[in-house]
Structure formats: C-alpha cells, structure tokens
C-alpha cells in the first residue's frame, strides 16, 4: 500500500503545480487600482473618508487594509509589497524604520488623539480628571471598561494616565479589560459598564456614549499616528496620496472624526 501513498503524493504535487500559475497572478498594481495603504484598524472611518475624497478628485481609490498595527508592521517586515503605512503608535513605525523599510524623509505625524472618559449617552455625569479625582465614586460599584493595559495601546495610555493622577490603585480591581478599545466602547454603549476610557475619536463615532471627561494632555504620553511611505512602494500615486493626507484638506477630514491635526 506504500505505492498508493506515493502516487497520491505525486497527485498532490500535480494539483499544486496546476493551481500555482493559475491562481497566483503577481500582477503589479492592476490598472485602475490605487496605492495599497496599510492602516491601523482605529482609522477605518477617517481613512475611508479620505480615500473617498481622493477618489472624488479624480484619482484611482487607494486600496485600504485595516488590521492591528502590529500585524501590519510584521507584514511590511516580511517585505509584503505595500505603499503607505499608517500606524496607531510610534513604536511599530520605529520597528519598521529600523528594518530600513521606510522611504527616507517620508515619515510624518499625521494626527494625534485625546484620551477621554465616556458614559452611556443619557448620563448627566461630569468628571474633571485631575490628581485624585472622584472616579471611584462615579463608578458606583460598576466596571470601568478599557482596553487591556497589558496588550492594547489605549489601555496602556489609560493606565498610565490613571496612575499619574493617583487613582489606578483604587479602581484597578474594577477594570473590565477589553480585547480592543472598540470592544471597551461597546461595553459602555450597551450599558454593561457605567464608564469607559477610550480615545476621543471612538467617543465621537459611537452615538450610544457621551464624553464626560477629558484627560489632560500631560497625564499620558502623546497619542500619535505616524504615516510613512514604504521602500517597497511602486505605485506612482503613493507619494501624492501621502501628501494629500498631510495637506490642510486631508487633516480637515481627520478632524471631522475627532482627531487633533494641526
């Protein structure tokens, strides 16, 4: 029966060989396709709006791929052919730059974000995050929803801010650790948690919540979204689209979604 296995394996090789050329066209930027932009998942609405505007100006619409910055950075480091990278933090952009994959003088700060406290939309609460502020009382025994401080950037920023303001030790037992910041947002929007720590842009996007407090900028490291063109970029529009994002018109689009852009 060993012969049977051998013949089957030969059949496998034949099938694979037949599929290979038929299914894997290595077409470079098919006509009408815009540059490939790898962007952090939290930029989904704003980047789509920017891409729509760019397309309305008569350019092929960029192709946008949204995933965690970490996943995108690893794909770039595997030399996946992409044009632009927009990261949700500087660390992953640093990582890509260290690998020599950022085109010289193309890295720029696209936007920044603010960290806020949200409550369900009907709330009349008002908080002023300052050293020792009354977060514990505001929770009234409920949970504080935020991204997992061990893994999610928004959670990391939130924990740092709460530590700086001296309330982390009080509330840490009541933190509901979400797998990403949008999941934390959903916990508040659906009433599972009375309060949550999220980005200003998340709060803007979700009609089920309202901002009841804003963390002072000095309470956490700046939350920045860098953009860069990659050395693997071959699309002729890549640099033009990068400049459009950084132009006054581009930044106005991001401000519409709650980002800070100067």
């Amino acid at each position: 029966m060993g012969r049977v296995v051998l013949r089957l394996l030969a059949l496998c090789c034949l099938v694979a060989a037949a599929l290979l050329p038929a299914t894997a066209p290595a077409a470079e930027n098919p006509a009408g396709r815009g540059p490939l932009v790898l962007a952090a998942a939290s930029l989904q609405e704003s980047m789509n709006a920017a891409a729509d505007r760019w397309a309305a100006l008569g350019h092929p619409r960029p192709v946008l791929s949204f995933a965690a910055s970490s996943a995108l950075a690893r794909q770039i480091e595997a030399h996946a052919p992409a044009d632009l990278f927009v990261s949700a933090d500087e660390d992953w952009m640093d990582d890509v730059a260290r690998a020599g994959l950022v085109a010289p003088r193309t890295r720029a700060r696209l936007v920044t974000n603010a960290l806020v406290i949200v409550a369900p939309a009907g709330s009349t609460l008002r908080l002023y995050p300052a050293p020792g502020f009354a977060l514990m009382q505001a929770l009234a025994g409920g949970k504080l929803a935020m991204g997992d401080p061990a893994a999610v950037p928004a959670g990391r920023y939130g924990k740092a801010a709460l530590e700086r303001l001296g309330v982390w030790n009080q509330v840490q037992g009541q933190v509901a650790r979400a797998e990403n910041v949008r999941a934390a947002l959903a916990l508040v929007a659906h009433g599972a948690a009375p309060l949550g720590v999220v980005y200003a842009t998340d709060a803007r996007a979700e009609p089920g919540v309202k901002v009841v407090g804003v963390f002072p900028a000095g309470s956490h490291a700046p939350i920045t979204y860098p953009v860069a063109r990659l050395t693997s970029s071959t699309h002729p529009d890549a640099e033009k689209f990068r400049r459009f994002l950084l132009s006054a018109e581009g930044k106005a689009i991001f401000r519409r979604f709650g980002f800070v852009a100067h």
């Binding site: 290979l20 050329p21 299914t23 894997a24 066209p25 290595a26 490939l36 791929s65 794909q75 595997a78 030399h79 996946a80 052919p81 992409a82």
Partner: peptide, 11 residues
C-alpha cells in the same frame, strides 16, 4: 521559479 507571491493575494 514562478514569479509569484502569495503575500496580500487571495491565493
């Protein structure tokens, strides 16, 4: 050998 890549492709 084939000039193909699977990265970013449906394959």
């Amino acid at each position: 050998l084939f000039g193909v890549t699977l990265l970013f492709r449906w394959t």
